[in-house]
Design a protein around this nucleic acid. Sequence first.
DNA 1: AGTACCCTCAACCATATGGTTGATCATTCG
DNA 2: CGAATGATCAACCATATGGTTGAGGGTACT
Lengths: 120, 120
Amino acid sequence: MVDHSAAGSDRKPDAALDRTLGALADPTRRAIVAGLRRGPATVSEVARPFPISLYGVSKHVRVLERAGLVHREVRGREHHLSLRAEPLRALSDWLDGYAAFWEERLDALERELAEDRRGD
Amino acid sequence: MVDHSAAGSDRKPDAALDRTLGALADPTRRAIVAGLRRGPATVSEVARPFPISLYGVSKHVRVLERAGLVHREVRGREHHLSLRAEPLRALSDWLDGYAAFWEERLDALERELAEDRRGD
DNA sequence: AGTACCCTCAACCATATGGTTGATCATTCG
DNA sequence: CGAATGATCAACCATATGGTTGAGGGTACT
């Protein structure tokens, strides 16, 4: 019997990471997140810089919200959005699992570059 | 005139980051990457743990390849795949722009939790 | 030569994604 | 009250995504 559960070392597929990475994969959404880093803002405020419709941005915001990256606080008719850090931290933790790998590779790269310079 | 170019502090939309995040947003592809962390492998070897067709995996590999996360070396009839570190490092660098933010927020969260405990 | 093996290609399918628009709901303001 | 504002909803559209299958192209084994 083939073991389908251990394709590497990821225990469970981790749907939260799916949503975080998926949400951040869109440049508009990354820009929204970048804007929100400066502090909370309403949907209209967040939408202003973008050339797409308000509702277009609204949909992006909902994706970010489902990923837990953005928190919405309805205050009267305004929806105040703020950046939530946890998913970013989780992503960073996941990435840390590869830090050792890329540092190794980078050492190797540096060695290669040193050789290339010598032969240049 | 509205400035559409500075929606935050992202200079250019950065299509490379789009591809990296998009590639990693899929659990199968993350599992492939995780497997490749141990060292190079052929497409069939990479595909073995997954319940989908070989070509299904092959298509995932191509996505990873276009994102620069995987390098392919055709050796006879076998395609040897290896993990490339640069996109992961670039992602880490991008994330670092938020490290300060989430550390702040985490401090705030801890304070709030302390208050919640007291009021519980 | 002939067969088995590794992998990709072409075509197809279902669903998800990113975008639009007009209508609608709720709230604030004159 | 009535009008403007902030945001969502419903419907729609085009394209991308993740999966399948059968066929085919090279490469290796005997």
